[in-house]
Write a protein that binds this DNA or RNA. Structure first.
Lengths: 146, 146
DNA sequence: ATTGTGCGTTTGATTATCCAACTCACTCGG
DNA sequence: CCGAGTGAGTTGGATAATCAAACGCACAAT
């Protein structure tokens, strides 16, 4: 009896941005770096696979290519709405990395529009309380039982 | 002149949980699935690389192996504090996937302890406002200029 | 005329991943 | 007792992904 993996938006999301270098490319573009060479340098990705990744990110609608030079044709990568929305994911991942992986001080520090250093927290949109693993329970989920 | 990738907690975090299947394995364990076969089935990972991933997740301190049977020795995978803390990342990624990748209804729905369906939002810990890409600016960052 | 920059693409070698089959140590049903 | 089933991996061989370095091309600056 063949089994089927669990249907899940985490898996779906990772199918789009889960390959190596994709998230780091998105990080750079969110930081305002828009050009191929700089993205390659700052991430450490090799140029060929970066080209493949960027093309995919354009195809799935996280990026758009915007021409900034006619001859030769040169493009910048700019974020779509879906691409911008990924900032919450990267910020949360960064906060987790700061706390549990990176040794010493956080390499990147953001200032929020409120004037304080940004410490991102994941909260419930309804009650505004931080989400704890014990404070949530599954209401509906795909249970693979073939 | 050789260049150096940007020092960054996103990259550090991905070095730990960024390989294929790692996040999905963590998802399953956060859902309460603790055993090898079920994790393999529910993620779709092949058994050999799942074994490698789980070993690494144990090595870096996101999981612990807990013996639940003497003969033969059988283990369950349980979360450390660092592993539990990853739930915020997965939740945020899931919300993004629900919104921008998955077609149709969210496959997974959580209930928060406040009694409402959980919609996770990333906010500033200081002012409690949702974080928008335009509402934040870099205060300090590693700039690779070798 | 030479050097440099920007953006990829190609090449050839190295790794990673996949699937199926195998092991080992049990348990259970008949 | 015997055979089938389960749980947790390992092993083997094929396929796919990734790597670093080199190449191409169009221009710009010196």
């Amino acid at each position: 009896m063949p089994s089927r993996p669990r249907e899940c938006s985490i898996a779906n999301a990772l199918a789009v941005v889960g390959e190596r270098w994709s998230m780091l490319a998105m990080r750079e573009i969110l930081l305002g770096v828009r050009r191929f060479d700089q993205i390659a340098r700052n991430t450490g990705a090799s140029r060929d696979i970066l080209a493949v990744r960027l093309r995919k990110l354009v195809d799935v609608g996280l990026l758009e290519r915007e021409q900034y030079e006619e001859h030769p044709p040169r493009y910048e990568y700019v974020l779509t709405e879906a691409g911008q929305a990924l900032h919450a994911v990267l910020l949360t991942l960064m906060a987790w990395g700061d706390r549990y992986v990176t040794e010493g001080d956080p390499p990147t520090v953001w200032e929020h529009e409120c004037g304080e250093v940004l410490r991102p927290v994941t909260v419930c949109a309804h009650c505004h309380e931080p989400v704890r693993p014990e404070g949530m329970s599954v209401l509906r989920i795909d249970q693979p039982r073939p």
